[in-house]
Design a binder for these strands. Structure first.
Lengths: 298, 298
DNA sequence: CGCTGTTACGATATGCGTAATCATT
DNA sequence: AATGATTACGCATATCGTAACAGCG
């Protein structure tokens, strides 16, 4: 198996097209096409879907992961040999939007001092982060599932607590004299159409959850809408602590939603990954709630 | 960094010479020499000592490990793609002689059913197994130290118990009427010149251990010499259970030497390594004593 | 019809083998 | 001297680029 050809495949999946891949490899599109052709004939399977953007087939995903892991090993060796490359290595990490908006910010401070890596966060739904990891597209992922992934190490990060909040006046408008919220009537907000957390919350409260919630796929936008009284939303506790204390926002219920987050990462020996693991664990310790079933470190 | 060149280096270290490496790569010695030359000029360091046999320099060791780990990843990908190569992959493991003679035999039964790997045991002194692992020469090692190796995973295996034994008549000859053994007088046996276990045992008993022990670097030979009454020796308990029960051999003291063994293995995602880890853990569970400080699984 | 991937074909250059040379024992 | 690594050199072939072609939106 020719690893240069595998690299070409990875570049295509990275850039999304043969043309951009050729540019990044300092080659012509023709050469890239020929490399992929040779690779496909050697493995006997189609490795890339010629779509826009180009995507890896299941067979291609295996090879993409191979390319990335070899790249990591190679950089590790280069470090040990004292050969420093000009460009830092890209570490792709799949995360959910809420994490990136909240506790992962603590990681960025640490990461800013790493000269040899460039973090590439792929924001995805919690379910989809695992798919990206399986596909070899990312080297690590934050998930809600602790189900292990082949070739990966897993450790629990902590609990992210969501509170049902709304602006004080909106809450007052939809709260009865008995202090019970009219869940079916109060307008909802949500980040994107994959946000099933809120639907579960509503379903558990008898509301059939067909409430057409406003959709604002921006953390800042969502908070602004929240403050403006456009609707209620389940948000990470940390993001609204100040507003709650100031009385601008109120919780609609004492119930909370606790989501346990897990870290999955390639089992490849790399000090870059080790350092990332440590920093992630630290950021989680600082920014997430403790684990439910007794403390277990990494 | 050209991985074909790195492969050539690994082949040289494997075979011990440029010529044999060329044969194994289906090339001429000239081509191998040129590859190494190109590699050395690209990393700016000498990677192999032109001795007999050829050995890797520190820089070369880094690259050899890279080659082996990439090979493992590549095979893993090939498995996932359903491409089975003709020749199984060589997994190199550094072990101490005693383990290979005793509890590791249980592993061989399991390993015989693996069509895709060929185990290559490198027998070495316990201290040297770690060196082989660090050098990238082997992918896993059994050691007496739990000190972690960068890029490796470690778990404890269990305790190997050594008994001081001798033939019944030799024991009788060097045991006083008070039942105390004349450690300074009784002749000793040992496997090889690295066997410091016995010297420690003697030193702890006041004997200054300059006893010129007979040296028999063969497990079968050592046991034959033991039965023949040539000397006493510290041997793994399991190897002499039957003879002790039959009264052919006797223990010279109730004191035992317990050595805790540890497993170190590359942190590379490979189902071959995972399977090996499991089998090792199982063999250790069956063939070694339980861990001293409370049971902790892998 | 423009965009992007593929193919045909000529050009080049990487890298091999042959054979002579050098070093080491 | 013999063994094994290196080097000089010519050559083959893999691989690239150019340019024409094809599929698709």
């Amino acid at each position: 198996m020719n690893l240069e050809q595998v690299r070409a495949l990875a570049a295509i999946v990275d850039t999304g097209s043969f043309e951009l891949a050729a540019r990044s490899l300092h080659l012509t599109p023709s050469a890239v096409s020929q490399r992929v052709r040779a690779l496909e004939s050697s493995v006997g399977q189609v490795v890339v879907r010629r779509t826009h953007p180009c995507t890896a087939t299941p067979a291609g995903a295996v090879l993409v992961r191979l390319a990335r892991q070899v790249e990591l090993l190679e950089e590790e060796s280069r470090d040990l040999l004292g050969i420093t490359r000009a460009e830092p290595l890209a570490l792709r990490v799949a995360v959910n939007a809420d994490s990136l908006d909240t506790w992962l910010i603590g990681l960025l401070d640490a990461a800013s001092t790493w000269p040899d890596v460039r973090l590439r966060f792929e924001v995805a739904d919690e379910d989809h982060t695992l798919a990206l990891l399986r596909a070899g597209q990312v080297g690590a992922a934050i998930t809600t599932e602790s189900e292990p992934v082949p070739g990966c190490r897993t450790f629990p990060l902590g609990v992210m607590r969501y509170l049902p909040v709304a602006s004080a006046d909106l809450a007052a408008r939809f709260t009865g004299p008995d202090g019970v919220v009219d869940w079916a009537g109060i307008p909802g907000l949500r980040y994107d159409d994959r946000d099933d957390l809120q639907e579960h919350f509503l379903a558990a409260r008898g509301s059939e959850a067909e409430t057409p919630a406003s959709q604002i796929p921006s953390a800042a936008g969502l908070r602004a809408a929240l403050r403006a009284g456009l609707g209620w939303v389940l948000v990470p506790e940390r993001t609204v602590e100040d507003e709650l204390a100031a009385g601008l926002l109120v919780t609609l219920s004492d119930d909370v939603v606790d989501v346990t987050l897990h870290w999955h990462v390639w089992k490849v020996p790399s000090h870059r990954l080790d350092r990332l693991n440590e920093a992630i664990a630290r950021a989680a310790r600082d920014g997430l709630g403790p684990l439910p079933g007794g403390a277990r470190g990494m």
